[in-house]
Simulated assay, not measured.
Amino acid sequence: MSFGVVLVDDDVCLLKGLELAIDKYARIELRGTASGCEEGMALIRRVNPDVIVVDIDLKDGDGYELIRAARKENPLLECLVVTSHEEDTYVFKALEAGATGYKLKSAGPVAIVEAMMELWEGGAPLCPDIARMILRRFHKPIADDAPPQLGTKEKEVLELMFKGFSRKELAAILNVSTNTIGTHVKRIYTKLDVSSRSEAIYEATRLGLISLDGH
Rank of each mutant, 00 (worst) to 15 (best):
A34Y: 01
L95G: 04
E19S: 15
I28G: 00
I52E: 03
V47N: 07
E87W: 04
E38W: 08
A70E: 02
L104V: 08
E39R: 13
A42W: 02
L18V: 10
K93V: 03
E19A: 14
V81T: 11
P75K: 03
D88C: 05
V53S: 13
G98T: 03
A99N: 11
L43Y: 09
E73Y: 06
I67R: 06
V91H: 01
L66N: 09
L58I: 07
V54A: 12
A94W: 11
A69R: 11
Y90C: 08
N48W: 05
M41I: 12
I52L: 01
L58A: 09
E96P: 01
E73G: 15
E19T: 15
C37L: 15
A34I: 03
G36S: 15
C79W: 02
V53W: 04
L77V: 10
D23N: 13
E96Q: 12
P49E: 06
V53N: 06
A107K: 08
D62C: 12
L95F: 13
I52F: 04
G36N: 14
T89V: 15
E29H: 14
V53Q: 00
T83G: 00
A97V: 09
L66G: 02
R27S: 13
S106M: 11
L20W: 07
R31H: 07
D60G: 14
T100M: 09
E73T: 11
I28V: 13
D60F: 04
A70V: 00
G101S: 06
R45Y: 08
P49D: 07
L30M: 04
D62L: 06
L18S: 08
G32M: 01
E87V: 04
L58D: 09
E39D: 13
L76V: 10
L80S: 05
R71E: 00
A97H: 02
Y64T: 07
C37K: 13
M41R: 12
N74H: 02
E65K: 12
C79Y: 06
G98A: 03
K72V: 04
E73N: 14
I67D: 01
D55V: 00
K59R: 13
G32C: 02
P75H: 08
D57A: 06
E38Q: 15
L43G: 11
A99W: 10
E73V: 01
Y25I: 13
G36C: 15
D88Q: 10
P75W: 06
H85C: 11
A99C: 11
E29D: 15
T100P: 01
L18P: 07
L18A: 10
I28P: 03
A34T: 04
V53R: 01
E39A: 15
L80F: 01
Y90N: 01
D57K: 10
A99P: 09
M41C: 03
Y64A: 02
E73M: 15
M41A: 12
L66D: 11
M41V: 11
S35L: 11
A94L: 07
E29M: 13
L76F: 08
Y25C: 06
I22K: 10
L95M: 14
D55W: 01
K72T: 10
D88P: 09
A94P: 01
V82E: 00
A99Y: 05
H85Y: 15
E96S: 06
R46G: 06
D88K: 12
L20T: 10
D62N: 14
G17E: 08
